[in-house]
Simulated assay, not measured.
Amino acid sequence: MTYPITASRPTHRIYAVSRSGKQKIWRAIGALWPHHDGKGFSHKLDCLPLNGAEIAIRQIDADIDASEGAQ
């Protein structure tokens, strides 16, 4: 069963978070959209971490997202 996505833009970004010493490295690996009924999510992954990285999902902040696209 599939549900239509409510927006054309994702609401959350999916990250692989790994450590290098004390520093955390966040790599964007996908995006997430809520289902129309509000009971679940659809996601698209561009890659999968194979290094034991944690998966983190964060709501997209419009200001930060716009600055990332400008780089």
Score class of each variant (00 low, 15 high):
Gln59His: 13
Ala56Trp: 12
Ser42Phe: 11
Arg19Glu: 13
Gly38Lys: 06
Ala62Thr: 15
Thr11Lys: 07
Cys47Ala: 13
Ala7Gln: 14
Arg9Asp: 12
Leu45Asn: 09
Ile29Arg: 03
Asp46Val: 01
Gly69Ala: 08
Ala7Gly: 08
Ile5Phe: 12
Ser8Met: 10
Ile5Ala: 13
Ala53Leu: 08
Thr6Trp: 03
Asp46Ser: 11
Gly69Leu: 08
Asp61Tyr: 12
Ile14Gly: 02
Pro34His: 01
Ile57Thr: 13
Phe41Lys: 00
Lys22Arg: 09
Arg27Asp: 12
Pro10Glu: 01
Ser67His: 09
Asp63Lys: 14
Asp65Ser: 14
Ala31Ser: 14
His12Trp: 08
Ile60Tyr: 05
Tyr3Phe: 14
Leu48Gly: 01
His12Ser: 03
Gln59Glu: 12
Thr2Tyr: 12
Ala70Met: 04
Asp61Thr: 05
Leu32Cys: 10
Asp37Met: 04
Leu50Phe: 14
Ile14Met: 03
Gly52Trp: 12
Gly52Arg: 08
Pro4Gly: 07
Tyr15Trp: 15
Ala56Pro: 00
Leu45Thr: 03
Pro34Arg: 10
Gly38Asn: 04
Ile60Cys: 01
Gln59Ser: 10
Arg9His: 13
Asn51Gln: 08
Ser18Ile: 06
Ala70Gly: 02
Gln71Pro: 01
Ala56Ile: 08
Ser20Ala: 09
Glu54Arg: 15
Ala66Ser: 13
Gly21Leu: 09
Phe41Trp: 15
Ser67Arg: 15
Lys39Met: 07
Leu48Asp: 07
Asn51Thr: 10
His35Gln: 04
Ile55Leu: 14
Ile29Glu: 05
Arg13Pro: 00
Arg58His: 13
Gly40Ser: 11
Thr2Ser: 10
Glu68Thr: 01
Pro49Phe: 07
Tyr15His: 11
Ile57Glu: 01
Lys44Met: 12
Thr6Leu: 01
Asn51Asp: 15
Pro49Val: 07
Asp37Ser: 02
Ile29Asn: 03
Ala16Gly: 07
Ile29Cys: 04
Pro4Arg: 05
Ala28Ile: 13
Phe41Tyr: 15
Ala66Thr: 07
Arg27Phe: 03
Pro4Thr: 02
Met1Ala: 11
Ile29Met: 03
Arg27Trp: 06
Trp26Glu: 09
Ile55Pro: 01
Ile64Cys: 03
Gly21Cys: 03
Phe41Arg: 01
Ser8Pro: 03
Leu50Ala: 09
Arg19Lys: 15
Lys24Ser: 14
Thr6Val: 12
Gly69Asn: 08
Lys22Cys: 00
Ser18Asn: 06
Glu54Met: 13
Pro49Gln: 00
His36Phe: 11
Ser67Val: 14
Ile14Cys: 00
Trp33Asp: 07
Ser67Ile: 06
Lys39Ala: 11
Leu45Glu: 04
Gln23Thr: 13
Ile5Glu: 10
Val17Trp: 04
Ile55Asn: 03
Lys39Glu: 13
Val17Thr: 04
Leu32Glu: 12
Ala31Cys: 04
Ile64Gly: 00
Lys24Met: 09
Met1His: 14
Thr11Gly: 11
Thr2Val: 07
Lys24Gly: 02
Arg58Thr: 08
Leu32Thr: 06
Lys44Ala: 14
Gly40Asp: 03
Glu68Phe: 14
